[in-house]
Simulated assay, not measured.
Amino acid sequence: MIGLWDTTGNEVVKALAAERRSAGGVASGMALTLIVVVEEKRVREAEAAATIAAAAHPCRIVMVVRSDIERERNRLDAEIVVGGRLGPCEAVVTRMYGRLALHAESVVLPLLVPDVPVVTWWHGEPPAEIATDFLGVVADRRITDAAQAANPVAALEQRARDYAPGDTDLAWTRITLWRTLVAGAFDTIEAKVTEATVVAPRTDPTAALMRGWLAARLGIDPIWESTTEFPRMRGLQLRCANGDELTLIREENMATFRRTGQEDRMLPLVRRPLGDELAEELRRLDADQVYAEALGALAGISGLQQRPAQRVHLWKDPATAQRAEAGITAHGGTTANH
């Protein structure tokens, strides 16, 4: 590992090149660049997940840790790791302070691997608008995690309003096994499904996307049955026109599958580590149309998959917004005009 304190972007690029040369073939054959936007307190957690994903998809990991944008003096610290604790990949952890944190692209762009796709993953509360963040604009794929937001379901609805092809969310990844089990059940169903119920807490983003997926696939409006007895989606029930019912109920790492006229079956429904979820999303670098349809059905917005894939950078200064809010508070509900 190389540590650079109070350095410059050029020095980081030079140090990375030197470390690659000394590492020999360890850093060859990069399939993509993974940009990780994360808070300081979650860097190690993000490193662990990215390392698992990089084992399946060799990549260069560029971590962006933004801190204290109000600091008067800009500062850049960096750690460079090739191989070592992060396995057969290379990583640059950049910590940006002051106004530099608002212009992370000046540091990140020279660190992208040439001629390979770029994926940006926000490990934390998703941004309100990805278009205001250059790290989202430069990426071919953008991965958010609505579960990290204060209101996860509202965060998904915002993702629909802000959607462009290439976006995805880890809440969608977490229902892959659910969708696989449900889709498998349709191999033996001949009657039309007329009604569906999803049992989950009202704040569960995976349940919201499951409802959206069922609505988009089946053309129905699934019922959301609220529960507080389980921290995440508990189960779902499908009712067919011929009276048959299919039910999936989660029991820790297993699910009980029930169908009218058949014996109950136990099926695996394991909650995967974060790194495995991230690795799944890195398997595809094209737009996920099924996710777009489910997200659109959830938010009541049609045609998401027809939107243009290209994003345009719209930069907004958060410091200006903070000063405006402070002005509103200080002047009893109105911003001072001078």
Score class of each variant (00 low, 15 high):
residue 1 M to Q: 07
residue 4 L to M: 04
residue 6 D to A: 11
residue 7 T to W: 09
residue 10 N to I: 06
residue 10 N to D: 15
residue 12 V to F: 10
residue 14 K to C: 00
residue 23 A to M: 11
residue 24 G to I: 09
residue 26 V to F: 09
residue 26 V to K: 15
residue 27 A to Y: 07
residue 28 S to A: 14
residue 29 G to A: 12
residue 33 T to P: 11
residue 36 V to L: 05
residue 39 E to P: 02
residue 40 E to F: 02
residue 40 E to H: 10
residue 42 R to V: 07
residue 42 R to S: 11
residue 43 V to W: 12
residue 44 R to E: 15
residue 52 I to L: 13
residue 53 A to F: 11
residue 57 H to E: 04
residue 58 P to F: 02
residue 61 I to P: 00
residue 62 V to P: 10
residue 65 V to Q: 05
residue 66 R to V: 08
residue 70 E to V: 01
residue 71 R to I: 00
residue 72 E to H: 10
residue 77 D to P: 07
residue 79 E to R: 15
residue 80 I to V: 15
residue 82 V to G: 04
residue 82 V to T: 07
residue 102 L to R: 09
residue 105 E to R: 08
residue 109 L to F: 09
residue 111 L to N: 00
residue 115 D to K: 10
residue 127 P to L: 02
residue 128 A to H: 08
residue 129 E to K: 09
residue 130 I to P: 09
residue 133 D to S: 06
residue 136 G to H: 09
residue 137 V to L: 06
residue 144 T to I: 04
residue 144 T to Y: 01
residue 146 A to V: 01
residue 149 A to G: 04
residue 151 N to V: 01
residue 154 A to W: 03
residue 156 L to K: 06
residue 157 E to Y: 08
residue 160 A to L: 08
residue 161 R to W: 03
residue 164 A to Q: 15
residue 164 A to M: 10
residue 173 T to N: 00
residue 173 T to L: 00
residue 178 W to L: 07
residue 179 R to C: 08
residue 182 V to E: 01
residue 185 A to K: 03
residue 185 A to T: 13
residue 187 D to T: 12
residue 190 E to Q: 11
residue 191 A to H: 02
residue 191 A to T: 02
residue 200 A to R: 02
residue 201 P to N: 11
residue 206 T to D: 14
residue 206 T to Y: 06
residue 207 A to I: 02
residue 209 L to W: 11
residue 211 R to Q: 06
residue 212 G to W: 08
residue 212 G to N: 08
residue 216 A to F: 04
residue 219 G to D: 06
residue 220 I to S: 10
residue 221 D to P: 00
residue 222 P to G: 13
residue 224 W to K: 10
residue 228 T to F: 01
residue 229 E to D: 11
residue 232 R to V: 11
residue 234 R to K: 08
residue 239 R to K: 15
residue 239 R to F: 06
residue 242 N to A: 13
residue 242 N to L: 13
residue 244 D to I: 01
residue 245 E to I: 14
residue 257 F to I: 03
residue 259 R to C: 06
residue 259 R to M: 12
residue 262 Q to V: 01
residue 264 D to E: 15
residue 267 L to I: 15
residue 270 V to E: 07
residue 271 R to V: 12
residue 273 P to G: 13
residue 274 L to E: 10
residue 275 G to P: 01
residue 276 D to H: 01
residue 277 E to H: 13
residue 278 L to G: 03
residue 278 L to I: 07
residue 279 A to H: 05
residue 282 L to I: 10
residue 282 L to A: 09
residue 283 R to K: 14
residue 283 R to A: 15
residue 284 R to H: 14
residue 290 V to H: 04
residue 291 Y to L: 04
residue 296 G to R: 06
residue 301 I to E: 03
residue 303 G to D: 05
residue 304 L to Q: 04
residue 304 L to N: 09
residue 315 W to F: 09
residue 316 K to P: 00
residue 317 D to S: 00
residue 320 T to A: 15
residue 321 A to F: 12
residue 323 R to A: 15
residue 323 R to F: 12
residue 328 I to D: 07
residue 328 I to N: 04
residue 329 T to P: 00
residue 330 A to V: 02
residue 335 T to Y: 03
